[in-house]
Every structure is written in C-alpha cells, then in structure tokens.
Amino acid sequence: MERPIRVLVAKPGLDGHDRGAKVIARALRDAGMEVIYTGLRQTPEQIVATSIQEDVDVVAMSILSGAHNHLFPSVVKLLNKEGIEDILVIGGGVIPEDDIPSLKEAGIAEIFTPGTPTTETIRYIKENVKR
C-alpha cells in the first residue's frame, strides 16, 4: 500500500461552527487520506506547531469570518520561519475573488471558494503534494 497523504484540516479565526471543515475532512478521509482535525479557533502558532508534530503533507485551512487576509499568510510566514517548505498550504471558505491574487502571492498555493466540489480539492492535493 502506498503511504497515505497526511492533511491538517484547521480552522483559524473565530468562526462559530465547523460544518464546512468537517465535510472536507470526511471527503479527504474517503479519498484515503489521514486527516488530523483540531477543532475551532486555532491560532497560526497552534496550526504550525501541529503541522510539525504531525508531519503533515498539507495544511488545509477554512475561514468564514473574513480574517483570511491576515491569518492565512501568517501561517505561511510562521512555517517559513521554521524553515518548512515542503508543506502544501491551501485555503477555503468565504473568500472574495479580489483577495485571491494577494493570498497566492503570500504563499497559499490554492484557494477553494464555496461550491467547489470536494473532488476538485482532492485532485488538487494529490497532484500538488510536495513529497
């Protein structure tokens, strides 16, 4: 059996529920991935510390509350500060089209907006994991 891809599904920010994150977590599991799920209200520091200990291939973050322009890039910055370059960072949630270019510039590899089929996210992860 080939090794399963390990994904941290994280919810940074102050969102009050995590239905969307749970849907994606289940979809990734059903696609044969090992999903580490950490619950609501994660700080960028917690997300990075968890990525290190769990040695994940992917960090998938989801935000509904609108703090993505701050929180997504700070996770990438903290990862880089740790010298970590082999983790694929992707984001999802309610994110205006206009914000996407700058997020990509900040190192978020891809952004999945509401309505993206989970199959698309799965395909993207499988094709883009860095190791």
Binding site: M1, P4, A25, R26, L28, R29, D30, A31, G32, M33, E34, V35, I36, Y37, T38, G39, R41, Q42, T43, E45, Q46, A49, T50, Q53, E54
Partner: peptide, 29 residues
C-alpha cells in the same frame, strides 16, 4: 483507519488544543 478507503479522521487533538504550542509536549495522532 477506515478499512474501505484506508483514510482516517484523527480527532483527539481537539481536546488537547492548548498543549499544541507547549515546547515540552509532543503529540502525534
């Protein structure tokens, strides 16, 4: 681990959130 897909959801860290950044703790799922 799901015997069907080979995937899993590892959720124990939900109850250990503030241990994540403690330098004296290492958690692995």
């Amino acid at each position: 681990t799901s015997p069907f897909s080979g995937g899993s959801i590892l959720g124990d860290r939900i109850r250990m959130q503030d241990l994540a950044t403690d330098p004296g703790v290492f958690i692995r799922s």
